[in-house]
């Protein structure tokens, strides 16, 4: 599976490690993100908290808006397409997007199939809740995996659940004997060669990032300590009262995730974080992390 094209896609994900990728909806926000030290921006028309509030079908962003953002920043620009909507992905590839997020935050276009991502030259990132989902997406060609978390909730609990699940399963797979791997792969619905890779290397074949609910510097530190290699921050920055300061603080806390003094200093003086939602306040059918399989 590690042919040159795939190596190249994973290579860009490697360059984004230890950083913060921020959701932005216009060129001004993109500049704020870059100036705060973001390693990439995710260009989308509405941040997840607003998608949740507005309802309706959420689709790929307008190419005009994506191009405007590409013009003002020198860091990589990512964008989202709907799950299974390979035509949106083709458009994003044509626009020169650096990474496509086949995302549950948008309304799925195909309830059965995800995009066959090996067909594309541009790398993809996909969300997961557990190791089976992660390895299925990698099998389809995703060059980066992120936890789904619960986008737009400002609540870290789902991201923690998903990261702990993936990391726990990686440890479990390493305890299996070779003759148990096929049955394990069958049970989690994952390609057996990828399960074998995890056993041999003790990690996913692609970088493993965190997303969905990060709102504070301490949230960023928590996810890094749980094994995330980079943090995506969506609504957490531009739904807060002080986006520029909060963006910088989350970058610093991600770099120094293992140093509580720095995380404390980064958190000092910040205004209110985004309000956040209890998971019990989000009806099951409205939970974004339940989309996709």
């Amino acid at each position: 599976m590690l042919n040159k094209d795939f190596q190249l896609k994973i290579g860009l994900a490697e360059m984004l490690k230890g950083g913060v990728i921020m959701d932005v909806t216009n060129p001004d926000q993109a500049k704020i993100a870059e100036d705060a030290g973001a390693v990439a921006v995710m260009a989308l028309e509405r941040i997840p908290a607003d998608i949740r509030a507005d309802g309706g079908v959420a689709r790929m962003s307008n190419p005009k808006m994506i191009k405007e953002i590409q013009k003002v920043v020198s860091i990589p620009v990512m964008a989202k397409c709907r799950i299974g909507h390979f035509a949106e992905a083709q458009v994003l590839q044509t626009l020169g997007i650096d990474f496509i997020d086949e995302s549950e935050v948008l309304t799925p276009a195909d309830e059965k199939n995800h995009i066959w991502k090996h067909d594309f030259k541009v790398p993809f990132v996909c969300g997961c809740r557990d190791i089976g989902e992660a390895l299925r997406r990698i099998g389809e060609g995703a060059a980066m995996i992120r936890t789904k978390g619960e986008a737009g909730s400002g609540n870290i609990v789902e991201a923690v659940r998903h990261m702990r699940s993936v990391q726990g399963s990686i440890r479990h797979i390493q305890t299996l004997s070779d003759d148990e791997l096929m049955a394990y792969a069958k049970n989690i619905g994952a390609p057996v060669d990828l399960v074998m890779y995890v056993k041999e290397h003790g990690k996913l074949p692609v970088p493993n990032f965190s997303a969905g609910g990060i709102a504070t510097p301490a949230d960023a530190s928590l996810m890094m300590q749980l094994g995330a290699e980079t943090n995506f921050v969506g609504s957490g920055i531009f739904k807060s009262e002080d986006p520029a300061a909060r963006a910088k603080a989350i970058v610093l806390a991600t770099t120094h995730f293992d140093d509580p003094d720095t995380v404390a200093r980064a958190s000092e003086g910040l205004k209110e974080a985004m309000p956040g939602l209890e998971m019990s306040a989000i009806p099951e059918e409205e939970q974004l992390n339940k989309r996709g399989w």
Partner: peptide
């Protein structure tokens, strides 16, 4: 190392 030069230089300053 490799990475995002703008992000790294900001951290060097900060």
């Amino acid at each position: 190392p490799g990475g995002e030069s703008t992000a790294i230089i900001r951290l060097i300053e900060k």
